[in-house]
Structure formats: structure tokens, C-alpha cells
Design a binder for these strands. Structure first.
Lengths: 223, 223
DNA sequence: ATGTCATGGATACTAACACTATCGATAGTG
DNA sequence: CACTATCGATAGTGTTAGTATCCATGACAT
């Protein structure tokens, strides 16, 4: 198929496809003449993946580029593909200040849960930074119990994620699942968390009499 | 305190503080003369909150503005504060196409878990969109079992979140916890998930002999 | 009292990002 | 043979999150 057809199939404007080609998000098609290239189903799939990473996953073009590079590089052992995908989608954070204790708490948590990871796992810095931020804000709600529950939930999700990876047919498919799952899983969980929060909120803090209950409100008039 | 002191205390440049004032992220100080204002601890706290929302939570200025407006508006009942915070931090998604079934699966999940929420809860659209994206990518890994585990994890986290809210002293503090927790909780969980994923990955797909194990790798040379 | 410096308010500028538009030379198509 | 599409390059656009500059006024130290 030619570029116009790739554009029509994926719903992506031709100039945008050219941009993706320039940025390395989309491999060049097979050249059939100096100014003609053939694209195939793999290109369609790649465009859809890129759009998913950008729109749903919220990645930047640079991050998406790193992700698809990891996908294309089949010299990487599967056991480290998670790391590559994770590092690609996690923006580097500045090192914590000296008086912060988030890193120590996370290290402790890892020890207690038998979480063995590389010390440059981006989740370590990310989680530590969030804990430090909480305490800098004076909102001391990340108790041991709360952190423990978050960790349990993370284990649950991680188990589901790896289950999904293991269910893939071949190694290439596995890599794909890892990459897609790493990015989209965050969004999926965030969505479910919003639902569960609201449901739990209504359970704990019932609405005053006369206020429409969730089930009674069937229109979306307010936003 | 004056603006320069506010700047020094929070580590935020004066022009940025002026920008926050313009954008409504920071309330004006108490005017003591036509060109002098006094700022106090509430302003320091607000600046820190704004930086946390922007840097750690990844919100845009517009979203952060909506969040702090909700914080300042004490006419909102607590039971709906979650909704406001959630809607403020969740970017609206386009409506799903007709053949997509993500919304139906999420509705089913809500029913099975007794999750009663307003139909405009942003998590509903968000989660449905992710599921639709997975299937559009041909990565059919969100089985019923996987979704169930994600939902369990969401319940676990939501319970911890509401526990934190309930532990706050007064209503103003509760609102604060809700807002901060909604935004930072996503990041905290995402970090823990990355750790748990890598740990679980090593458990399921052990590294080949000779490759450094997580515990052996103590430097951060690669990124 | 006066020189210096900070402040508030307004306006303009910048860098990064993700496209989007245009152009010229070619090439395939009806 | 006219017409459209393509490639590759270059340049332009709109948005976002600040930065920078300017000015008139006011505070503060000497």
C-alpha cells in the first residue's frame, strides 16, 4: 500500500506520517523507486501502536521513539525488556535531597516484600519522590499500612502483567505485550482507581438526603 | 514575607511566582501598599502544592488551576470532592467508536464489584478507552482474570486512599488529602508497579547464567 | 532627603513540543 | 501527456510553561 492508503487506514494525516518517519517512530517502507515506497500491515500496526502510546499512554514522541526502538531490537533478552520499556516511559527525576527519607522507606519495602530489582529501576526513584513530596506537603498519610496496601496492589497488578506476557505465543509477541502493557497498564489502573475511589467514597461518606445517588444520575450534563 | 522571601523559601524564581499569580494558581498576597504585598505560610504551602502537582503529578497548569480552585471552594461536600479532583486531573477522552466493547466490559465489572459511581466518572471512559486500545492493537491480554486482578488492586488502593482521608483531622485537611492523594497516588502506584513488575519478571524469567543479578548490580552506569 | 533596590503590573519574548504546510524534483496513472 | 502522488527537505503554526524587560511607585538605609 502507498502512503495515502496508510493514511486512510490509520486515520492519520499524511504529513503526520511523514513526521513519524522523520522521527524514527515509523520505519521506512520498501522502496520501489526513488520516490515510491510500499507499506504493509506492519506499518499499519506500528502507526496504531504509536498513536496508542501518544494518545492513551501520554508519552512524548521521544519516549515513544525509545519504546519502538526497544521493540525493534530483538537482541534484548526478555527479562530486561520490562526495564527498557519502563525506563523509556518514566521521565528521569532529580535526585532527592539529603533529609528526604522516601528512598529509605522504599528500600525497606522492597526488602520486606522480597522485591529484587536493579538499583536503577525507575520505580524506585519515582515512588521515593512521591513519598518525599507527600511529606514536604505536610500530608502525612502514607502510613506503613497504606504503603503496604499499595505494595500489595502493585504485586497483584504485576502478577497479572506477567501472566499476560507469559500467555503470548512467541518472543516477539511477548515483547509487544510488555511494551504495550507497561504503558497502557498505568492508564488502565488509574481509570479503575478513579472508579473504586468514588464507589468507596460513597460507601464511607454517604450523600445527604435528597442528593441524587449515583444510580439516579443518568445524564452527563455537568463536567 | 515579601515576594523575594517567598521565592527563596520555595526555591521558585520570582517571575514564575508572578506567572502563578497571573494564572490563578497562587492567590494574591495581602496588599500593604499599592506596590507591596505580604505573603504568609499559606502561600508557601500553596507554591509547594502547585510544584508537586506540576512536577510530580504531571498536571498541566490549567489542571492544577482547576484543582486549587476546588481546594479553595469549601462549599463542595466532601463526598463529591473526589469527583472534582478526578475530573480536574483526567483529560477528557473522545467518545468511543460503536464497535468498541470496552465500556460494556467496564460496566459489567462495576456491576460485579458493586461499584456505584456517577456515569460521568472519568475513570469509566479512561478504563474503557484503554481496553479498546488494547484490542485495536491486537493485544488481547486483558482477560477477565486480568481485569479482575486490576480491579482488586484498585479496590485495595482505594481503600487505603479513603482510609487516609478519614484519618485527616478536619474537613479542610480532608479536602487537601483528597486532592493531593488523587494526583500523587497515581504516581506512587506507578512507581511501585514498576518495581513489582521487574521483581516478578526476574522470578518468572530468570536471567541466563553469568548475567549480573539485581543484587549484584550496584552502579547506575547505564540508563 | 536621597540614592538604591524591590515590587506589582503589563507586555513581550523564549524554548520545547507535536505537528502542519509548502516546495521542487520525480514518478506512476488514466 | 496531463494530472496526481510521493519523497525529502525546509519552514511555519499553535500550545504550553515559563522568562525577561520595562515602568512607575514605594520601601529602606544612609
Amino acid at each position: 500500500m502507498r502512503m495515502s492508503e496508510l493514511s486512510a487506514t490509520t486515520g492519520t494525516p499524511v504529513p503526520t506520517l511523514k513526521f513519524y518517519l522523520r522521527e524514527g517512530l515509523l520505519p521506512a517502507g520498501e522502496r520501489t523507486s526513488p520516490n515510491q515506497s510500499q507499506y504493509d500491515e506492519t506499518h499499519v500496526a506500528r502507526v496504531r501502536l504509536v498513536r496508542a502510546l501518544l494518545d492513551v499512554g501520554g508519552l512524548t514522541v521521544a519516549q515513544a521513539s525509545a519504546v519502538v526502538s526497544a521493540l525493534d531490537d530483538d537482541s534484548v533478552p526478555l527479562s530486561t525488556t520490562f526495564g527498557i520499556a519502563q525506563r523509556a516511559v518514566t521521565q528521569p527525576a532529580p535526585p532527592a535531597t539529603s533529609e528526604a527519607n522516601g528512598a529509605a522507606r522504599i528500600a525497606e519495602l522492597c526488602a520486606s516484600r522480597d522485591w529484587a530489582v536493579y538499583p536503577n529501576n525507575p520505580g524506585l526513584t519515582m515512588a521515593a519522590r512521591v513519598i518525599d513530596t507527600y511529606s514536604a506537603l505536610g500530608v502525612d498519610v502514607i502510613t506503613e499500612a497504606a504503603l503496604e496496601r499499595y505494595a500489595q496492589a502493585a504485586d497483584l497488578v504485576a502478577a497479572a502483567d506477567l501472566e499476560a506476557v507469559a500467555s503470548a505465543h512467541d518472543e516477539a509477541q511477548m515483547t509487544n505485550v510488555v511494551v504495550v502493557g507497561t504503558v497502557l497498564g498505568d492508564a488502565l489502573f488509574a481509570g479503575l482507581r478513579r472508579i473504586a475511589q468514588e464507589a468507596e467514597s460513597f460507601r464511607r461518606f454517604p450523600l445527604p438526603e435528597g442528593t441524587p445517588a449515583p444510580g439516579d444520575l443518568t445524564d452527563h450534563k455537568d463536567c
